[in-house]
């Protein structure tokens, strides 16, 4: 066994793939303390006072951006939101030039979402500020993976040895990739399920069980995670119709009944009711979908605190 981590090694959080199991545990443990802060009458601590965090979102996002912003404010950081529609990107500025201009204002952390996989890595090499990946293309969405793991651990008290089914569009999903890296590192048994047309090449090398039968994935599961069918990406004819998709892969009460009695149902949002998940399931007693949103704030507070409170970047550089 490795020693338990007391800090993160890097200045950035680019993906779960770069983290060790003990770093993941450190973030989840820190998030537990952060969750308590959100339950106080005064939901604010001074830990990141005087730190500047820039939220740079190249893709539309309500949930993730709001969640980061709440997390930053609860830690007393100064936050700036840059919405791309009103920025100089529309005037043709490149990502690197935007980053260098922001860097000149000396931020401590840049939270970025971008449509291109690897955009955060590019930024990380250019900037001294810590970079937090809030979703890059089809690559990773590490804070979503962490908040999902936090939610599972909160309910099941562990991750090791659990059967976790992930169902839906595995090809385009950065949530899938971050969850697979995280859950397999923590010793969970992951079942990936979806139409063959929506599976990434090399899925068999990710260390997960692969199936196209949703019943097989759901059977005996401790947690079922539904992924969004990204309607905006569905021009490629991946399956005949949304109605047929729901019939074959949609999470219905009958399919939930195959899982363990205490199964939890998860969805990273935004949901397409009647496409990947039935409303009875989304609003049912097993659903922890809104807990995931609440836990997102705690997990993001933990990540920001561990990155900005570290002072370890000079030592590493």
């Amino acid at each position: 066994m490795t020693e338990s981590a007391t800090r993160l090694r890097g200045k950035d959080l680019l993906g779960i793939a770069d983290l060790t199991a003990s770093e993941i545990s450190l973030i989840l443990d820190t998030a537990e303390a952060m969750k308590e802060v959100s339950s106080r009458p005064i939901k604010k601590v001074p830990a990141l006072r005087g730190k500047t965090v820039i939220n740079l979102f190249y893709e539309p996002s309500t949930r993730t951006r709001t969640s980061f912003e709440v997390a930053e404010k609860r830690l007393s950081a100064d936050t700036l939101n840059i919405a791309i529609a009103t920025s100089s990107v529309v005037k043709g500025e490149t990502l690197i030039d935007t980053a260098l201009n922001l860097e000149a204002m000396n931020p401590d952390i840049i939270v970025m979402r971008h449509a291109s996989s690897g955009a955060c890595h590019l930024l990380s090499r250019t900037c001294k500020a810590g970079i937090v990946n809030a979703g890059d293309g089809m690559h990773e969405h590490p804070t979503q993976g962490l908040l999902d793991a936090f939610t599972i651990r909160e309910r099941k008290k562990r991750l090791h040895g659990l059967k976790i089914a992930i169902v839906g569009d595995l090809l385009h999903s950065r949530v899938f990739r971050s969850n697979v890296y995280l859950l397999t590192k923590m010793g969970a048994e992951v079942w990936a399920c979806g139409p063959p047309t929506l599976m990434p090449a090399g899925i068999d090398r990710l260390g997960v069980h692969v199936t196209t039968r949703v019943e097989e994935a759901a059977e005996g599961a401790d947690a079922i995670m539904m992924l969004r069918i990204q309607l905006e990406r569905m021009q490629g004819g991946y399956f005949p119709s949304l109605r047929e998709y729901f019939q074959v892969f949609g999470m219905t009460p009958e399919r939930v009944a195959l899982a363990k009695p205490d199964v939890i149902i998860m969805h990273p949002g935004p949901m397409n009711r009647g496409v990947e998940i039935a409303s009875e399931v989304a609003d049912g007693p097993a659903s922890v979908i809104l807990d995931q949103v609440a836990n997102g704030v705690a997990v993001r507070m933990a990540v920001l605190y561990l990155l900005a409170g570290g002072g370890n970047d000079e030592a590493a550089a």
Partner: peptide, 25 residues
């Protein structure tokens, strides 16, 4: 009471592990 998030030396420790945040109850 866990006071880690209220410390005034959080950013000053260039070496050594950061204090681990624990729950306030």
């Amino acid at each position: 009471l866990d006071i880690t998030l209220y410390r005034d030396d959080l950013m000053k420790t260039a070496v050594g592990p950061q204090p681990i945040v624990r729950r306030t109850e």
